[in-house]
Computed example of a mutant assay.
Amino acid sequence: MATFNTTVNISPDDVKILKAEGYSLYGFKSVAASGDGSPTVWFHLPAEKLLTSTKITWQEQFQAYNSTSTVAPQVVIEASNTINTDLGELVTIEKGSGNIESTSDGYPGAVSFLNNDTQRFTVGINQLVNGKSNILCAFPILGAGSARVITPITKIALIFSTEKIETATVITKAMSAGAFIDLTGTDSRTVDYAINDGWSAKGGNWLKNFNAFTDLKKLLIENTSSREKALSERSK
């Protein structure tokens, strides 16, 4: 099970200011999928837990969920069912009950979903971060054999904000300026944050700054489509 981490370095003076003004650190995770899905708050570090060197650690340990929550801004996704799964597995929503099961019939490198029920659901994946398995995305899925294929990507977004937002909340616009960090080809990154200068990585082109109100759906969700069509056809 691969483990990844990102360390955020902040000066002692800036940590004091962030804590005094109630800034929390919010994290989001990137995926590849098709359809009108949205990122959700993956993790939240409250102001009192900020350090001069704050380390975020996550593993390739996944769960899948289905939900009747609507995918809309500021909605907290509440899972109806959650199940352990892994990359390459197929999560099937059973007809009549809406329960889910995971089998080894999916696409490599992705968590696939197949909805055999006659009800529309919201589906997505959880990933273990800082010791907790939290929802990181939400996608609508129609019934009668519709499919979703969600591929986790080793890219994260970090945002400091004074807003109070729960994990699993759908967020489509950045609450404040943030950093988009690419861990492709590595398992660790170190970044710097200063309250007046923002995010930096000593010139590393794997960090991209983004502004408040940036469209997080465009930033974090890479579009794919052919796999879902093939999966739906395969189930018929």
Rank of each mutant, 00 (worst) to 15 (best):
G98D: 02
G124H: 04
D117C: 06
L231P: 10
T167M: 02
S112C: 08
W42R: 02
N81K: 14
I17S: 11
G143T: 04
V91E: 09
E101Q: 13
K217E: 14
A47T: 07
N115Q: 06
F180K: 09
T6E: 10
G27M: 08
I153L: 15
T68Q: 13
G88Q: 05
F62K: 05
E78S: 15
N126M: 07
V71R: 05
D182M: 05
A177Q: 14
T7M: 07
T169L: 02
L216E: 08
S188Q: 14
T103W: 00
G109R: 02
E60W: 06
A174E: 06
P39I: 05
T92R: 09
T154Q: 15
D86A: 12
E163F: 06
V91Y: 03
N5R: 12
T3F: 04
K202T: 13
I150N: 04
T190W: 00
A201V: 01
A201S: 15
A138T: 08
V8F: 04
I83T: 10
F121I: 03
Y65H: 07
L231A: 07
S53T: 14
N99T: 15
L207S: 08
I17P: 08
N209A: 12
N99F: 03
S146W: 04
L220V: 03
V149W: 01
N9K: 13
I10R: 04
V123S: 06
T151L: 01
G98P: 02
E233R: 12
A2E: 14
I195F: 06
I141P: 01
L216C: 10
L207M: 07
A147C: 08
K132N: 15
N126T: 11
T70H: 05
S11E: 11
P73L: 02
A64Y: 00
T154F: 04
G35D: 03
N81T: 09
S161Y: 10
A174W: 00
A168H: 12
K19I: 11
F180T: 06
F160V: 03
T186V: 13
Q74I: 09
S225F: 07
M1E: 13
S53E: 15
Q59L: 07
K95T: 12
P152M: 04
I135D: 10
T167W: 00
S97C: 04
A64W: 00
T172K: 10
T167F: 02
T6I: 12
T162S: 14
S30D: 02
F160L: 01
N66C: 09
W58I: 01
A144P: 00
R227F: 11
